Amino acid sequence: MHRLVDRARDDGAVRADVTGADVILLMCAPSYVTSYLPDAAPDPWQRYLAIIVDGLRPEGAHPLPHPPPAAP
Score class of each variant (00 low, 15 high):
L64K: 10
L49T: 06
P42E: 07
Y48R: 12
L64W: 08
E59M: 05
L26Q: 04
Y36A: 13
T34W: 03
L37M: 05
P38F: 12
C28P: 00
P58Q: 11
P42V: 04
D43K: 07
I52E: 12
A61E: 10
P65S: 08
A29I: 04
P44T: 01
Y48H: 11
L56G: 00
P63L: 07
M27L: 14
G55R: 03
G55L: 01
A40V: 07
M27I: 03
G55E: 03
G55K: 01
A40T: 05
P30G: 14
A41S: 02
Y48C: 02
P58M: 14
T34K: 01
P44Y: 03
D43W: 06
P38N: 08
S35M: 13
I51K: 13
L64S: 04
V53R: 10
R57C: 03
P38K: 13
P68I: 05
Y36M: 12
A41H: 01
L49G: 01
S31D: 10
A40P: 00
W45N: 03
A61H: 10
V33H: 07
L37T: 15
P68N: 05
Y48E: 04
A40N: 13
L49C: 00
P42I: 03
Q46E: 10
E59S: 14
A40L: 13
P58D: 13
P63K: 10
P42Y: 09
L56D: 00
I51D: 13
Y32F: 07
Y48N: 05
P68D: 06
M27E: 07
P44K: 02
C28I: 14
Y36F: 06
P68G: 03
R47I: 11
H66T: 08
P63A: 11
A41R: 04
E59G: 02
A40Q: 10
G55I: 01
Y36I: 04
A61Q: 11
L37Y: 11
R47S: 07
Y32T: 13
V33L: 04
P44N: 02
P38A: 12
C28M: 11
L49Y: 06
L25E: 09
T34H: 07
V33T: 15
L64R: 07
L64Q: 09
P65W: 07
P65G: 12
S35N: 11
I52S: 15
A40F: 11
A29T: 09
V33N: 15
L64D: 06
Q46R: 13
D54R: 09
R57T: 09
Y32V: 08
A41K: 02
Q46W: 13
S31Y: 11
D54I: 02
C28L: 12
P58N: 08
R57W: 08
H62C: 14
P44M: 02
P58W: 10
A50M: 02
C28G: 05
R47Q: 08
W45P: 00
E59C: 01
L26T: 00
P67F: 10
I52V: 12
L49D: 02
P30A: 08
